[in-house]
Amino acid sequence: MTEFLAATIRIATPLVFTALGGILSERAGVFAVGLEGMMLAGAFAGVITAFLSGSMLAGVAASVLGGAAMAALAAVATTRFRAEQMVTGLAVNILAVGLTSFLLRGLLGHGEAPTIRVSPLAAMPVPGLASLPVLGPVLFSQPVLTYVALAAAVAIYVFLVRTRPGLTLRAVGENPAAAFAGGADPLRVRMLAVTCGGALAGVGGAVLSLQQVGTFTDAMTNGRGYLALAAIIVGRWMPFGTLLACLLFGAADALQLRVQGLRLPVSSYVIQMTPYVVSLAMLAGFGRTAQLPAAIGTAFARDRPSS
């Protein structure tokens, strides 16, 4: 059981970072469909940098930059150019798959995909707490980025609910014209929110590449960005609710690994469907009552505040 819970948290970690990044973006009024691509860019930049420099810290820093760079492109397109947000996100995802696969072969491999190997971030037991029964192995014997993910959830909550910039961000997501009248610059706020969200999603990717597998494979995020998107909706755009939703998806995935070990008469493909079916079912359960940020999906133009 403790092993199952530990696996749940491990699997949920990349989702948590990515979903928290998505919250920043969506709370500011920009749909975060591009999370998948930002995550992939982060995973790539992180593991390549760690591989070339030998420093995991540099790797994590690069993943922040990679995710932020991908997000900045989406931010400029959706704010300055008022591009349709969801499809721009999709474009970012296509671009990220192409760009990472191309750079892997073109810059590093002379045409072929090279072998990238770093030893994944090891578990870092918290002295004292790690020896607690149950809680110790589940919560306090995780790799470092998992602790950071939990801290980030608290930090984003405090930022959104207890600080002035957080209030401004939410105001822009609810009513950009009013926020503009109140002295905020909605375009700037959205650009910052989307870019910072992308940075977080980039770390989510780094969790995959640096903490879980230690290498990069084409399109390795494999839909996790979309699951994070679903987690945000299930978690009603609040950090702790979203954290719970991510843990639930993590549990579905961990269960899948379990069941695969049991050799049940269900094929692995059916079991692989669980996270997607579970999130659809949860969205269907929560969807109707979900309160989207009021201005999400709409472009803001200073000269045309009504649009």
Binding site: L73, A74, A77, T78, F81, R82, A83, E84, V87, T88, L90, A91, V92, N93, I94, L95, A96, V97, G98, L99, T100, S101, F102, R105, G106, H110, G111, D218, A299, S307
Partner: peptide
């Protein structure tokens, strides 16, 4: 010897640029 994933880069970028142009002229 230019890897094929380059096509996805062209496709993704084209999409971002078209969306931006459409947004401007919406």
């Amino acid at each position: 010897g230019v890897p094929t994933p380059l096509v996805a880069v062209i496709q993704g970028l084209t999409m971002v640029f078209v969306l931006s142009a459409m947004g401007l002229t919406a």
